[in-house]
């Protein structure tokens, strides 16, 4: 009886194991069958937020010099307000309203619209240009993405995607190569190229944390590859997703 049972159990276990093996064999094939667009959309749904309030630290490194700036940022899908809180820049504010970027200097009590060639400058001397923070979120509307391979990055398997600007679309970077974590769908590295093929910037995610059901990059480094020995570290100290932000937060009146 015991032997029969054991035989039955063995068969049952063998069946389960067989199914598991099949699932395990099929699973990677299923995920690798994801299209580039699906991967980007999974990443976007993970990384882009409806609303969020975050305390952020920015460390600008130029040779051996390190300048630390702290800020609080309020963001929804269209707008963002950044208020600097470190003593030197306290009260300096940036407001992104749709396609416009405004800056407020507390000392001069002056409101400046950042446009044209000013957008190419580093934000507060960092490796992030104003243009970088103005980028549209919907990358799939601007770029045609191709899955060009899979690579290990810091011990994690990544999809490697290449995005090329769609014809007649206004984009800052003609080409971008992204490394997206295969399991957590978080961008771990992004290379941004000029139309000439010159690598302009590299952004590397150095720490990812889980917030309930989403993985979110909390530490990243941006390097301007046209300049030697400079980089900017961005550290999210705390973040509250889906926070309630009053609509008047993103008004010019509130900026003053």
């Amino acid at each position: 009886m015991l032997l029969v049972l054991n035989k039955k159990m063995h068969k049952w276990l063998a069946g389960i194991l067989g199914c598991l093996c099949l699932v395990l064999l099929l699973l990677p094939q299923h995920t690798s069958a994801m299209t580039a667009e699906e991967i980007i959309q999974r990443r976007d749904s993970n990384e882009y937020v409806q609303t969020a309030i975050a305390d952020v630290e920015m460390v600008i490194i130029n040779n051996n010099r390190r300048i630390t700036k702290t800020m609080t940022s309020y963001a929804d899908r269209e707008n963002a307000l950044v208020i600097f809180t470190n003593p030197r820049d306290r009260g300096t504010k940036f407001l992104k309203r749709g396609e416009e970027l405004w800056m407020f200097f507390p000392d001069a009590e002056d409101l400046v619209k950042i446009s044209g060639h000013m957008l190419n400058q580093g934000m507060m001397g960092s490796d992030f240009s104003y243009q970088d923070i103005m980028e549209s979120d919907k990358l799939t509307d601007l770029y045609e993405f191709k899955l060009i391979g899979e690579e290990e990055m810091d011990g994690r398997m990544c999809y490697v995607l290449e995005g090329t600007a769609l014809p007649d679309k206004e984009v800052a970077y003609y080409r971008r190569i992204s490394w997206v974590d295969k399991e957590r769908f978080v961008g771990l590295r992004e290379e941004l190229y000029a139309r000439s093929g010159r690598l302009l910037k590299v952004m590397t995610t150095t720490k990812v944390e889980q917030f309930e059901d989403r993985w979110y990059p909390v530490e990243a480094v941006m390097e301007d590859r046209l300049r030697k020995n400079t980089s900017t570290e961005l550290v999210i100290k705390s973040i509250e997703f889906n926070a309630t932000i009053p609509p008047e937060t993103f008004t010019l009146e509130n900026l003053r």
Binding site: E170, V171, A194, R198
Partner: peptide
Amino acid sequence: VTLLVRDKHSTFNTIE
């Protein structure tokens, strides 16, 4: 030197 420019479509380009 590298000249970093924005072309007619506002895309970054470089002149080496």
